[in-house]
Simulated scan of single mutants.
Amino acid sequence: MFAQSDGTFVCKRGHTRDPRALDLPPDEVWLANERGELVRILTPAATLECLFAADREYLDAPAHCEAEHPPLVEIRDAVLDLVTAMELGMPYPAEVRR
């Protein structure tokens, strides 16, 4: 989906969607990237929660091959969501639980 100048989104088939009609979980947001495409990501606060939870799980897990360790994938995905959110103008959360 792509952002329109009137604030709505349009898909490749021409269907439009009002952003107020989006039903999102409270920890997700939809943003338009630099190409005007609709991007669905976790909020920075939710991303950090995911990052810290995965980090705690990784530190508590027995040592074995890191490439096969699921928390590392979660950490990577959370960091990428955080970077995307920040690049698209979302503020860094004022309070971060660690």
Rank of each mutant, 00 (worst) to 15 (best):
A3W: 00
A3F: 01
Q4F: 06
Q4Y: 05
D6W: 07
D6L: 04
G7R: 02
G7L: 09
T8R: 06
F9Y: 07
F9I: 00
F9P: 00
V10D: 02
V10R: 01
V10Q: 04
C11W: 04
K12T: 13
K12R: 14
G14C: 07
G14F: 02
G14V: 03
H15K: 06
R17L: 15
R17E: 05
R17V: 10
R17D: 03
R17W: 09
R17T: 11
D18Q: 12
P19A: 05
R20C: 06
R20A: 13
A21V: 01
L22F: 10
D23C: 10
L24Y: 11
L24H: 10
L24W: 11
P25E: 12
P25A: 12
P25W: 09
P26G: 06
P26D: 14
E28A: 07
V29E: 02
W30E: 15
L31K: 03
A32H: 04
A32K: 03
N33R: 02
N33E: 10
E34F: 09
R35L: 14
G36S: 14
E37S: 10
E37F: 07
L38S: 09
L38D: 00
V39R: 00
V39N: 04
R40T: 04
R40A: 09
I41S: 01
T43R: 00
T43W: 01
A45Y: 02
A46L: 05
T47L: 05
T47D: 08
T47W: 02
L48G: 01
E49D: 14
C50L: 12
L51S: 03
F52I: 03
F52S: 05
A54L: 02
D55A: 09
D55I: 06
R56G: 05
R56A: 14
R56N: 08
R56D: 04
R56T: 08
E57Q: 14
E57P: 13
Y58E: 08
Y58W: 11
D60A: 15
D60S: 15
D60M: 10
A61I: 08
A61W: 06
A63N: 12
A63T: 12
H64N: 12
C65M: 12
E66D: 14
E68W: 13
H69Y: 08
H69G: 05
H69W: 07
P70I: 05
P70A: 11
L72F: 11
V73K: 13
V73D: 06
E74D: 15
D77C: 08
D77S: 11
D77E: 12
D77Q: 08
D77A: 11
A78Y: 01
V79M: 07
L80W: 04
D81K: 07
D81P: 08
V83P: 01
V83M: 11
T84L: 06
A85R: 00
A85I: 03
M86W: 12
M86K: 08
M86H: 08
E87N: 15
E87C: 15
L88W: 05
L88E: 02
G89H: 02
P91A: 03
Y92E: 11
A94G: 14
A94K: 14
E95A: 10
V96C: 07
R97S: 12
